[in-house]
Nucleic acid binder design. Structure first.
Length: 286
DNA sequence: CACTTGACCTGTCCGC
DNA sequence: TGCGGACAGGTCAAGT
């Protein structure tokens, strides 16, 4: 589910409330969601202090003072929701409308913190995972990911080089590749291609320099605006305080098949590209 | 090696 | 109302 903007939103919310907190206990109902033996969590997570909450691509990184980092991947339906000791999911002491109830039947992991607040991990489809990694091995774990798309190192010339490795595949498959654009998923792939006016089924090798530049710009612009909107919610996504994001109302292509293109008013088409449901405008995307 | 497909899970929606 | 099938935001292993 969550792509870069959603994970970044969760990261920001959780960093505020978790930084400096000690992990008091760790309860797991679905051991298969753990990538390490349970004893590793007892040794390196429980009793440690969370020094920071970071993000790389679609993964969250809880930096711990034990020398380890906790990596969390939410995959399709994972949620991380924090609840204060007062039992209220709130920001600045004010209750928020539309919050997720926690814990619930899909709450599989609970982390209890020193101030008696709790962090709940819910995951209907159980694809997500918790992975403890020595902090000095993080670079190795992330070695196949592209530079962060919103960072200065994600330059056009870097992307252009990366595209040369994927010349024969479709442009949609290419930008879904986490080694090309870490953090892009199905929503923001369709949004970026719409903004860049490129058909998702085009071969990468057929793109002109101008089109590749438009796509590079579109990826960054779409992700930046989605982060500003606190991500997209249409089903299970909730931010770090259980709230929904607002990008859904601003989307241009994803999930709008059958509706009018905002540029040319033709009906947006639904298709399958790179094995994924895809929406595009057959008239103004070339 | 490059690329595509199926599997992992559960829930929802749609047609019959 | 019930049932079967398709589909869902991600990523791997296994296949071509």
């Amino acid at each position: 589910m969550p792509e870069l903007p959603e994970v970044e939103t969760i990261r920001r919310d959780l960093a505020r409330v978790l930084r400096g907190q000690r992990v008091v206990s760790f309860a797991v109902k679905r051991p298969k969601l753990l990538r390490n033996p349970r004893r590793a969590f007892s040794r390196y997570l429980v009793g440690s202090t969370i020094t920071n909450v970071e993000r790389r691509g679609k993964q969250l990184i809880f930096k711990l003072n034990s020398g380890y980092s906790l990596l969390i991947h939410l995959k399709m339906t994972g949620q991380l929701v924090w609840k204060s000791s007062r039992g209220k999911i709130s920001a600045g002491g004010h209750p928020i409308a539309g919050v997720a109830q926690v814990p619930n039947r899909y709450t599989y992991i609970v982390i209890s913190l020193g101030d008696k607040s709790n962090l709940y991990f819910n995951d209907v489809r159980q694809f997500g995972y918790f992975h403890l990694v020595p902090t000095n091995e993080l670079a190795q774990v992330f070695r196949k990911l592209s530079p962060e798309p919103l960072s200065r190192s994600f330059t056009f010339s870097w992307l252009d080089m990366a595209f040369k490795r994927r010349g024969r595949t479709t442009v949609k498959a290419a930008i879904l590749d986490q080694g090309i654009a870490a953090g892009i998923g199905n929503i923001y792939a369709d949004e970026s291609l719409f903004v860049a006016r490129i058909k998702p089924s085009r071969r990468v090798s057929s793109l002109s320099e101008k089109e590749r530049q438009a796509l590079w710009r579109a990826i960054r612009g779409v992700l930046r605006r989605a982060v500003q909107a606190r991500g997209t919610s249409f089903n299970s996504y909730r931010d770090g305080l259980g709230r929904q994001g607002t990008y859904w109302a601003r989307r241009l292509a994803y999930g709008r098949a059958g509706q009018a293109c905002v540029r040319c008013r033709h009906v947006l088409q639904r298709s399958r590209v790179a094995g994924r449901g895809t929406t595009h405008c057959d008239i103004c995307q070339r």
